[in-house]
Amino acid sequence: MSNGFVMRSLDEVRFWSRIMKEHSLFLKLGFRCDDTQLIHEANQFYAVFEEIERRSNAFTSETDPEVIKRFNVEVHNAASRIWAFKRKVLGLILSCQLPGANNFPLLVDHISREAFYFRNRLEELNTGRLDPLPDAIINENVFFLRIMADHAKFIGHLLDPSERQLVEQSRNFSHDFDQLLFQARDLESMRPQSQTVPLLDQFLDQNRISVKSLRDFKKTAKELIESCRIKSIIHPLLADHVFREAERFLIIIDMLESSLTKTSAG
């Protein structure tokens, strides 16, 4: 294990622990006031991931890799627990045991997928079993394209219906990302034959263009919400949250593109 392992681990933990912390808050805000046990559990997870975030920021690139490996195991356990909590909440919603609550089933499924992604990434880092580049390109894009499509749907449903133009833009983004996701899954089912450098390069380029457009739309929506210039029930932190996830996807696309370029040049 090396400095690269330490920095990659800290990057994942710092980003996703904040995301998990915010998921806890969003779930809590969507529960009914008499769902006291669920609210208590959400508050506990908020505190757990806030502490993980704090501790991760105290580590540096010089930290002993063995210390980070143990930290990753601890965070993996926390991510597994919040995943189970989210799936429990989803089950309650789908069995009509939380009537009148405000957490969409798709949103709860969405945030549970992110928790599962996070715990798997920590497992991969600790065992050194990261996907080969061609698989990583397809797998990361399949995961994040679905996340982006979901975001567009949530934004459209949380805007006030009278914000007709923004609602229509959200629907268009939802459609576009559904189509990109279908394309990614087609590429996925055609592998390994589909994993040529030209196809993967075009795949990344096309997705980058669409993600930048969605990122810019989210940025505008975030600014409008923060300045109270549009009507919605979107929490300002949620607007910032989905914007950061689009930024994260763009960083990953750039990293994958850079690695693909080096591989083809070598």
Rank of each mutant, 00 (worst) to 15 (best):
D109T: 04
L256Q: 08
V67L: 04
T261V: 12
I209R: 06
R121P: 00
Q206C: 07
E223C: 03
E41D: 03
V13H: 05
R164F: 00
I209T: 05
A149W: 04
D135M: 07
F243H: 13
Q44C: 03
V108E: 08
L214Y: 05
L29R: 07
M1G: 00
Q202S: 10
E257Q: 14
N43H: 00
G30W: 01
I251H: 09
N72F: 01
V6I: 12
Q202G: 12
E168S: 08
S174M: 11
C96Y: 04
E12V: 15
I138L: 02
L204H: 07
W83F: 03
L27F: 12
E50W: 00
N77A: 13
R229H: 13
C228H: 08
I82S: 11
I52S: 07
D240E: 14
L250K: 12
S194M: 03
D35R: 00
L94D: 14
E123S: 10
T60S: 15
G156C: 02
L187F: 03
A184Y: 01
A101H: 05
F85A: 12
E188F: 11
R113H: 04
I111H: 03
T220E: 09
S174G: 07
L237V: 13
F71D: 08
R70S: 14
D109H: 10
V242A: 00
A246R: 01
S162Q: 04
K153Y: 11
V242N: 10
D150N: 12
R32Y: 03
L158T: 09
L181F: 11
F26P: 08
D205E: 06
H241Q: 06
L125I: 14
F26H: 09
I251A: 01
K69V: 08
P134V: 05
K21I: 06
E140F: 02
